[in-house]
Write a protein that binds this DNA or RNA. Sequence first.
RNA 1: GGGCCUGUAGCUCAAUUGGUUAGAGCAGGGCGCUCAUAACGCCUUGGUUGCGGGUUCAAGUCCUGCCGGGCCUACCA
Length: 570
Amino acid sequence: MARHLITSAIPYINGIKHLGNLVGSQLPADLFARYQRARGNEVLFLCATDEHGTPAELAAAKAGKPVAEYCAEMWEVQARIAEGFRLSFDHFGRSSSDQNRKLTQHFAARLDDAGLIREVSEKQMYSHADGRFLPDRYIEGTCPNCGFESARGDQCDNCTKQLDPVDLINPHSTISGSTDLEMRETKHLYLAQSKMKDQLEEWIDTRDSWPVLTTSIAKKWLNDGDGLQDRGITRDLDWGVPVMKGDAPWPGMEGKVFYVWFDAPIEYIACAQEWVDAGKGDDWQRWWRTDKGAEDVRYTQFMGKDNVPFHTLSFPVTILGSGEPWKLVDYIKSFNYLNYDGGQFSTSRGRGVFMDQALEILPADYWRWWLLSHAPESSDSEFTWEGFQQDVNKDLSDVLGNFISRVTKFCRSKFGETVPDRGAPGPLEQKLFKDMDAKLTEYEAHMDAIDIRKAAAALRALWVMGNEYLQEAAPWSTIKENPEQAATQVALALNLVQFYGIISAPFIPDAAATIAAAMRHEDTRWPQSLDEALGRLEPGHAFTVPDNLFTKITDDQRADWQARFAGTRS
RNA sequence: GGGCCUGUAGCUCAAUUGGUUAGAGCAGGGCGCUCAUAACGCCUUGGUUGCGGGUUCAAGUCCUGCCGGGCCUACCA
């Protein structure tokens, strides 16, 4: 039995994520986790909230709450929405956990012992009115290059010139508007990534068939300009993991915290500890320590393309640099972005559909199916309401839902709600078995390779085969001349229904559960062969006709939603 | 500016890594079926592969120059 450690990029705490965020990490990770479990493999699937950093502090201030309280509440909100989408995390942790604090401090100590941490004294913009150092992008002013008045301290949005906050004319804080700013000396810890450049590059070069997107981004960072740069891993903030060297104070670093991008990936490990401490498991080290049972684990990470540098470079430096036998990632599945109706999803402008809103208007399966079957794997992809309505109605209602409906209702009217007696398969059935066997193999191959759109297409093709078979077998005709043959055909078709529930479960778990309940057969073992899988419902087995699995999206609904989500989120 | 990705049918995407006549789904058109959610099946229209050069027996695929879209560019996370 293979063992799969699966992590999704951890969503930031300051608000509810949109569908683009969902399809870029959590949802495909869940698909893979569900599939591997269904195949009978051992899976540990982890996700968490990423809670530290300036944006969290500001969001909390805006909500008028202490940041810890704000984060605790938002964690609840995100956890509930994740359940709504049926994201099957074994544990949904928090980067602010004690476990992560200790582990982050531990890694920092190990890295320092290995000579991979250096102190750097630098000047940063301090705002007296805000009482804090400000990241460059929280400072705005007039661009010295083009005169644009809302240029950010890191880059001018108008002329795209790279800036330094001191370059700005009339700089002010975007938080308070204050112009009472000064450059202050401050000391920070830097992770000496450059020392490990060769080791990193060798590691990346030996990774097998990673997505182009993943390796090209990593290579760029490794070789661009002067090569891989060292990176500041501390910040002057209150909210975060206090800078400590293991259990000991870090002289000169009092009052500082680690940078979120240092502690966030470490949460992948800490989350496994949280999983154990929550009583859900009893040994996290056999997933994370190659000296304690993790050498046969296959570790797969899922993330949007913006997260790739941290997962291919910084986090591996943390792991490798520690000199301890932690499990390194085996495969990084990265995604492009999902656009919304000709533009980008926008959190700030409320453009697009957010996870909570999506669940308010339609069940999770609709979103799961559409998003996964259109996952932005090779390039950015696009959500339009027309496309969504058409695809979901056709695939889920017409092809799959209607198949289940026509089969179960036909059987009920002619044979009652039990599986009828079944004779030997004829040529038509043998051909079906052969074709489906090939398509199932293809489906499994795509799922194994995490080729999501191709997997969805193969699954849909399997659904279509049921309709093709029914059309050709035409039990509504054969029943007039040859009731035994009709019975055989219907018994097979009922088994197809059951079979579809099992193989579709990773994509549409709720519908799969409904099918299993209706067929009164909770056996979800993955098919060993078509013969075996299509023989599980035996003659005489009772079932019930389910309600229509998927109601169609009407034109009125579509128009309504289109208008509702076009602009500002209320 | 630099780097990477991308451009294939009205729409969303394929094309075994240079190999026959560029394929699917949706949408459109025709026929069939009547079990079913006006569903299903079969057939079918539709392409100068963004544009111009080049390499090659052979180019959607490689090179080059334009044009368009996107992302990243290290202090948002």
